[in-house]
Design a protein around this nucleic acid. Structure first.
Lengths: 234, 234
DNA sequence: ACCTGCAATATGGCATTCCAAATGGCACGA
DNA sequence: TCGTGCCATTTGGAATGCCATATTGCAGGT
């Protein structure tokens, strides 16, 4: 309420989105407009407006007359989302290699050195995830195609909340190895783009995302196994 | 109001969407909530809700405190959208060839014969456009990837209203030729999918959409030329 | 004649209110 | 003990009203 120059509608939308992406609202959780309104200290109207819009973005599941829920994707749907991500980003990489301008290349180098630092410190795992996502956004941008870029960002939002869940639950030994692997992938990928090797970049992106999908599926299986143990225990 | 079992929110959303896609509301036109509410005989609330959601779908442009407008894409953005469409549908075609089930193939054959009929009658141009769009939807569906399919449908909506404008204004001689050409493309494309020739299908889809984009750009240029004549005339 | 500023109106944003449907619990009966 | 139906409460849907901001048109001055 302080420096509130922005529109309440958009403000509420942004805050709810952030709550979902940061997993403070968990997938599957019911969203009661009155409760959220109280929590955000606004009336129901902007909350409902935001919920409607979030539903269009695929972050919220709006069931007619049965309430709103934080979106939850099945393992099959997640797999589809990753396949879709591969389609988008392979082409982003290709276009980026063709169209990247010097300013973009500088950004790439900045990110690379930042990654270099973080990679040496395993404590910064969460931060590394951030950077990881940032890289993919960075590649989608200089593709020069705003439709493609926007689609990537929307998709990323859908993936983010689940990635949180997964990374938190599956803090297994594989993480360090896969992080290092992902780091190498990114480095190689950016190198290809800088060299303007479009097909090479596309190829690398493809295998990189396939790897990520493999990891995700493994995590989902682990989590499912974990769940069944918990369930049988009680 | 008669058999109104559906939610007013969704009903209004659907009706507004239809008004936009059918070009009864033209790109760039201002959308005043009170006026639309009167026109649809509902209160402002569901209209505003729908406008917010339509904005997320890219059919409406919501400027903060400055009103809502039917979305309008520049020639550059249209070109981007077509490039994006190519990315999506090339992959749809590939996946469709890999995954299409017998039921899907039957649908393909149905559509093909329907096209066969219409193609012989140049009067049914508008109807042919419908079928054209339907075909692309039909190909996206059996790809088996709902994310890809949904993205295609959203993109199609954005293209639709403009296609209307363009087809209406550019009722030039090229149309008959390009319709026939598109028809051949579709036929060949579906044949490839039926034969499960994934790469062939992808390739054909690519050139088909590139052709469409060329046609679109030509139309936009024609229209721009037409406009300037009109402007200079008055 | 044109620019500037103010006032009136149009219009978007938000809260409150009322209404209807769905859900959950409880009592009664089998 | 389990099922069924009714009632209370919760909660989503929609209308209305008020306020704030943007747009406009007009008047007065330069």
């Amino acid at each position: 309420m302080a420096a509130d120059k922005s529109l309440l509608n958009d403000n509420v939308y942004a805050r709810l989105r952030e709550l979902i992406l940061s997993n403070q609202l968990r997938p599957g959780e019911k969203l009661v407009d009155r409760d959220l309104a109280a929590r955000l200290d606004v009336s129901r109207t902007p909350v409902r407006h935001a919920l409607g819009r979030l539903a269009m973005m695929g972050l919220v599941d709006a069931r007619s007359r049965r309430g709103y829920y934080v979106a939850q994707y099945s393992p099959e749907q997640m797999s589809d989302l990753y396949e879709f991500r591969k389609i988008l980003e392979v082409n982003s990489a290709r276009l980026a290699a063709q169209n990247a301008k010097p300013a973009h290349l500088r950004e790439f180098n900045d990110i690379l050195s930042k990654l270099q630092e973080l990679a040496t410190n395993p404590e910064h795992r969460a931060r590394t995830v951030e950077i990881d996502l940032q890289i993919h956004d960075l590649i989608a941008r200089p593709s020069g195609n705003s439709a493609l870029h926007q689609a990537s960002r929307i998709l990323m939002d859908k993936l983010k909340c689940f990635i949180w869940v997964d990374w938190l639950s599956a803090a297994s030994v594989t993480d360090l190895a896969s992080i290092a692997s992902a780091h190498r992938d990114h480095q190689a990928l950016l190198d290809r783009i800088i060299e303007k090797d479009a097909e090479g970049a596309a190829e690398l992106m493809g295998v990189h995302i396939d790897k990520a999908r493999q990891g995700l599926i493994k995590m989902l299986q682990d989590r499912a196994a974990l769940r069944s143990v918990v369930v049988s225990a009680k």
